[in-house]
Amino acid sequence: MSIVFQKTKGLTDAVTHYCPGCTHGIVHRLVGEALEELGIIGDAIGVAPVGCSVMAYNYFSCDMVQAPHGRAPAVATGLKRSLPDNIVFTYQGDGDLAAIGTAETVHAATRGENITVIFINNAIYGMTGGQMAPTTLPGQVTQTTPYGRDVNYSGYPVRVCEMVSTLDGVALAQRVAVNNVKNVMAAKAAIKKAFEMQINKKGFSIIEVLSTCSTNWGMTPVAAMKWLEENMIPYYPLGVYKDKTKEAE
């Protein structure tokens, strides 16, 4: 009997705590597969954030550090500067990366820290039960925007890839989504490319992954995928915002 699919060695056997229908599981697998396919599980050190993916340290099979809220890029900087030949990545949500950790994100990016950032954008705070995120869409209802996000009152969402792509230290900034098979395949290729760029010492790479939170969006998983496609992708267009390897050509 031939094996046609098996779980990546990049993940442990721990059972995740994520909600049914959550796309963290997909992104975890993509990261784990990328680490395995590049043969870098033994060299990689992941930094877990504060938020839904706080316990990512139990799920990735490489060495893991759990960082204070928003500080993952600073912790990753300390790791990478101490161990320049290892592979260092952070795995962060939108609140962690684009609200409380904005300074750490922007400055690690502009320094061109040779690290990889996996950025989960699901437009909501999941762990605390569905409050407004820096990426919550205009009009979107959350626990703390019960009448819908009023941009005149709460301000506008942050488009992270567009913002960091203006920084010279950034080697790769790409937005992908995991709402259908085609996009999942593209997301995998992007994540793998980000790690390859780190291996080749190109600088800061960030992959923003548009994700769903069916629990806090109050939808079925299938409806959430549809909502992502119809609402998030128009506001956060998929694509490559910066690619130093392309610029060199």
Partner: peptide, 26 residues
């Protein structure tokens, strides 16, 4: 070695957290 002027005191201590995790004196 590494001397890094961080963007903030907050970032600096977390860089120390990272370096200490790596096992070096920081």
């Amino acid at each position: 070695g590494t001397f890094l002027q961080a963007e903030s005191e907050v970032a600096a201590i977390n860089m120390v957290l990272g370096a200490a995790s790596a096992g070096v004196r920081a």
